[in-house]
Design a protein around this nucleic acid. Structure first.
Lengths: 133, 133
DNA sequence: CCTTGACCCTCCCATGATGGGAAGGTTTAC
DNA sequence: GTAAACCTTCCCATCATGGGAGGGTCAAGG
């Protein structure tokens, strides 16, 4: 199985497969005489795992830990859960930060006429010190 | 006013002030004979504007447009509002994406015992195809 | 006058995850 | 035998930000 087919089957681009190999997230594959990387079904599984973890917003360093737990039959599920919960906390923080931006912006936008006149509370809000909460 | 004082007063680091100058977001400042950048109160205002827009999550290219509207006395507030609303939509998309990740992860984490045993629905969820919604 | 410390300058490099593209080799199908 | 569709490595770009090297400047105190 060449890298292109593997990419299609796993949902991870060929570029990224090579990159993951270069940073040691996946092992170096075997090669044909011509130097083509060769993959097997189990590599597709692994890449799909990575792909799904990425889709859930895990960073590659966390995925490295997840992979190590995944391949360890003696793991404690508590370790996995701890990783997941830390990531949930991280997502919460990002969601909160974005929500706060959104709320401020909505407040400003609501106050703006949005017509041909130049008066604009949005620009004023950006130009003046933020009011105390 | 040297760059360090300007940085402190505006909340934009000296590094970033130089960077904003290099990409043309702010005009090149005057210099002393020794080559030191010189700033004035109005530059601090400008940088504070940029800082606040960044805090609201605007990208530098959008801030470029905001600055151009800010400095245009003949602007229409509708143009500002359009920028703001586009950005709100962008924030919404990002919040939604993160919330979806969070929801999936919370579901998986809830099903996980989190003890010494290796069975872990989180790892299973990552290893198996996502179920249809 | 000279030193010291706190500034400032430019230039290069790094982040994280991903993609684009060049230059060149391989395989496959017609 | 040739063209298309692969593959390889290597370099560069994104976006906003910071770190640090190597070197110049300025002000205060001895």
């Amino acid at each position: 199985m060449n890298i292109g087919e593997t990419a299609t089957a796993s949902g991870v681009s060929a570029k990224m497969i090579r990159h993951y190999e270069s940073i040691g997230l996946i092992q170096t594959s075997s090669r044909t005489l011509a130097g083509y990387r060769q993959y097997h079904e189990r590599d597709v599984h692994l890449l799909r795992f990575i792909r799904r973890a990425r889709d859930l917003g895990f960073a590659l360093e966390q995925i490295r830990q997840l992979l190590s737990l995944w391949s360890d039959p003696g793991r404690a599920s508590a370790d996995v859960k701890r990783l997941a919960e830390a990531h949930i906390a991280d997502l919460d923080a990002r969601i909160d930060a974005l929500s706060e931006m959104r709320a401020t912006l909505v407040t400003l936008a609501r106050a703006c006429h949005g017509d041909h006149r130049p008066d604009c509370p949005i620009l004023q809000g950006l130009a003046e010190p933020a009011r105390a909460p």
